[in-house]
Amino acid sequence: MKITKDETAKVAKLARLELSEEKLELFTAQLGDILAYMDKLGELDTSQTEPLYTPVSHTTVVREDEPARTVAREQILSGAPEDDGQFFIVPKIVG
């Protein structure tokens, strides 16, 4: 699979990453090589095969929803880049 610089830039933007021109060039070439290698899977006939997304069969287990105080608000906020003691603070959303 060939990938263009525009495609790389578009996917990077979706992932909220910004690539310099130099890195865009490098990544586009590397991504092209990696995706070309991955295209090898096309050699296998999987028309009769169901996907396997996890090795265990019980991923939708639920436990009792019991409210508990595990950590305090101050603890949760302690790692935040910016807070006001009550909430996380972020830059303005609409310019």
Partner: peptide, 14 residues
């Protein structure tokens, strides 16, 4: 083409 295909190959490997 990629993710679902890889998951199918994953089953074959298993």
């Amino acid at each position: 083409a990629y993710y679902r295909k890889a998951a199918k190959v994953r089953r074959l490997i298993r």
